[in-house]
């Protein structure tokens, strides 16, 4: 240990001892502080406190953060809502067209079927007319192909309709991200207030809480937790309708 440091410590200890003997409270406190200040720990805590303080001040005064809270976050939520609106419009438009096209296919099939029966009756009345029989035979095989195509068309249209299911599932997932953004926003605004920010956006009401851990309370389960996402799907989530059926069967269904 350096001679100077050692001398300083002895002097500080002596000052503390003197103040204690003299009963001088102020001098005693000063001397005690002087002794403590010597330790590296005290220095380190002081430095960290200063850094945290400065960081918080910089955080509060950073205009970008206020901007983020006031404009960017609500804007992001609006954009996501707009995606839901757009997919809703697109899905409903597709469904409207399918709903119009389906009866067209059905009418086509009905009329083909009736025509086929009429032609068959006509041909039956004149079996001695070979040209008529041939023509009716040709027409009938054409009408059969119309009926088959009509079936195929209806099946495809049902598929197109079912594909629109994506709108519900993607919409539910987006609504969850919107809720998450609202919660994040509320917490950030709270932090800004604590650090004395000049102005912070009005916090929007936080949505239903949802834990990030993947564990859900009974209340959360009751409220619904949304569609399972492939990457995050856990073991306690059923994978398909067969799983649902098995589970229900095990419950006596």
């Amino acid at each position: 240990m350096e001679q100077n440091t050692q001398n300083g410590r002895i002097a500080a200890a002596q000052a503390l001892l003197d103040a204690a003997r003299a009963g001088d409270e102020d001098a005693y406190a000063t001397a005690l502080l002087g002794l403590n200040q010597d330790t590296p720990l005290f220095d380190e805590v002081g430095r960290m406190t200063r850094e945290v303080h400065e960081a918080l001040m910089a955080f509060a005064e950073d205009d970008r953060l206020n901007h983020l809270m006031q404009d960017d976050m609500p804007d992001a939520r609006e954009r996501l809502r707009y995606v839901i609106t757009l997919t809703d419009q697109a899905a409903n438009r597709t469904l409207a067209i399918v709903e119009e096209a389906m009866p067209v296919a059905e009418r086509l099939m009905d009329r083909s079927e009736r025509l086929r029966q009429e032609l068959t009756q006509i041909a039956a009345k004149e079996p001695e007319n070979p040209r008529l029989v041939t023509v009716v035979h040709t027409l009938n095989s054409y009408l059969d192909s119309v009926l088959n195509s009509g079936d195929t068309l209806k099946r495809h249209m049902t598929e197109i309709m079912m594909a629109q299911e994506f709108q519900d599932l993607s919409g539910q997932l987006l609504l969850r991200v919107i809720t998450l953004l609202e919660q994040l926003e509320t917490k950030m605004v709270g932090l800004l207030k604590v650090t004395g920010a000049r102005s912070a956006s009005q916090s929007s009401t936080p949505g239903a809480s949802s834990s990030a851990s993947g564990m859900h309370s009974a209340d959360e389960l009751r409220a619904g937790i949304g569609p399972a996402v492939p990457q995050t799907a856990a073991k306690d989530v059923v994978k398909n309708q067969d799983d649902v059926d098995d589970l229900l069967a095990s419950l006596g269904f």
Partner: peptide, 14 residues
């Protein structure tokens, strides 16, 4: 008819 697919939820519904 739902996207809620947790086993616990299916049991809850049952």
């Amino acid at each position: 008819v739902t996207a809620e697919a947790k086993r616990e939820q299916i049991i809850m519904a049952a």
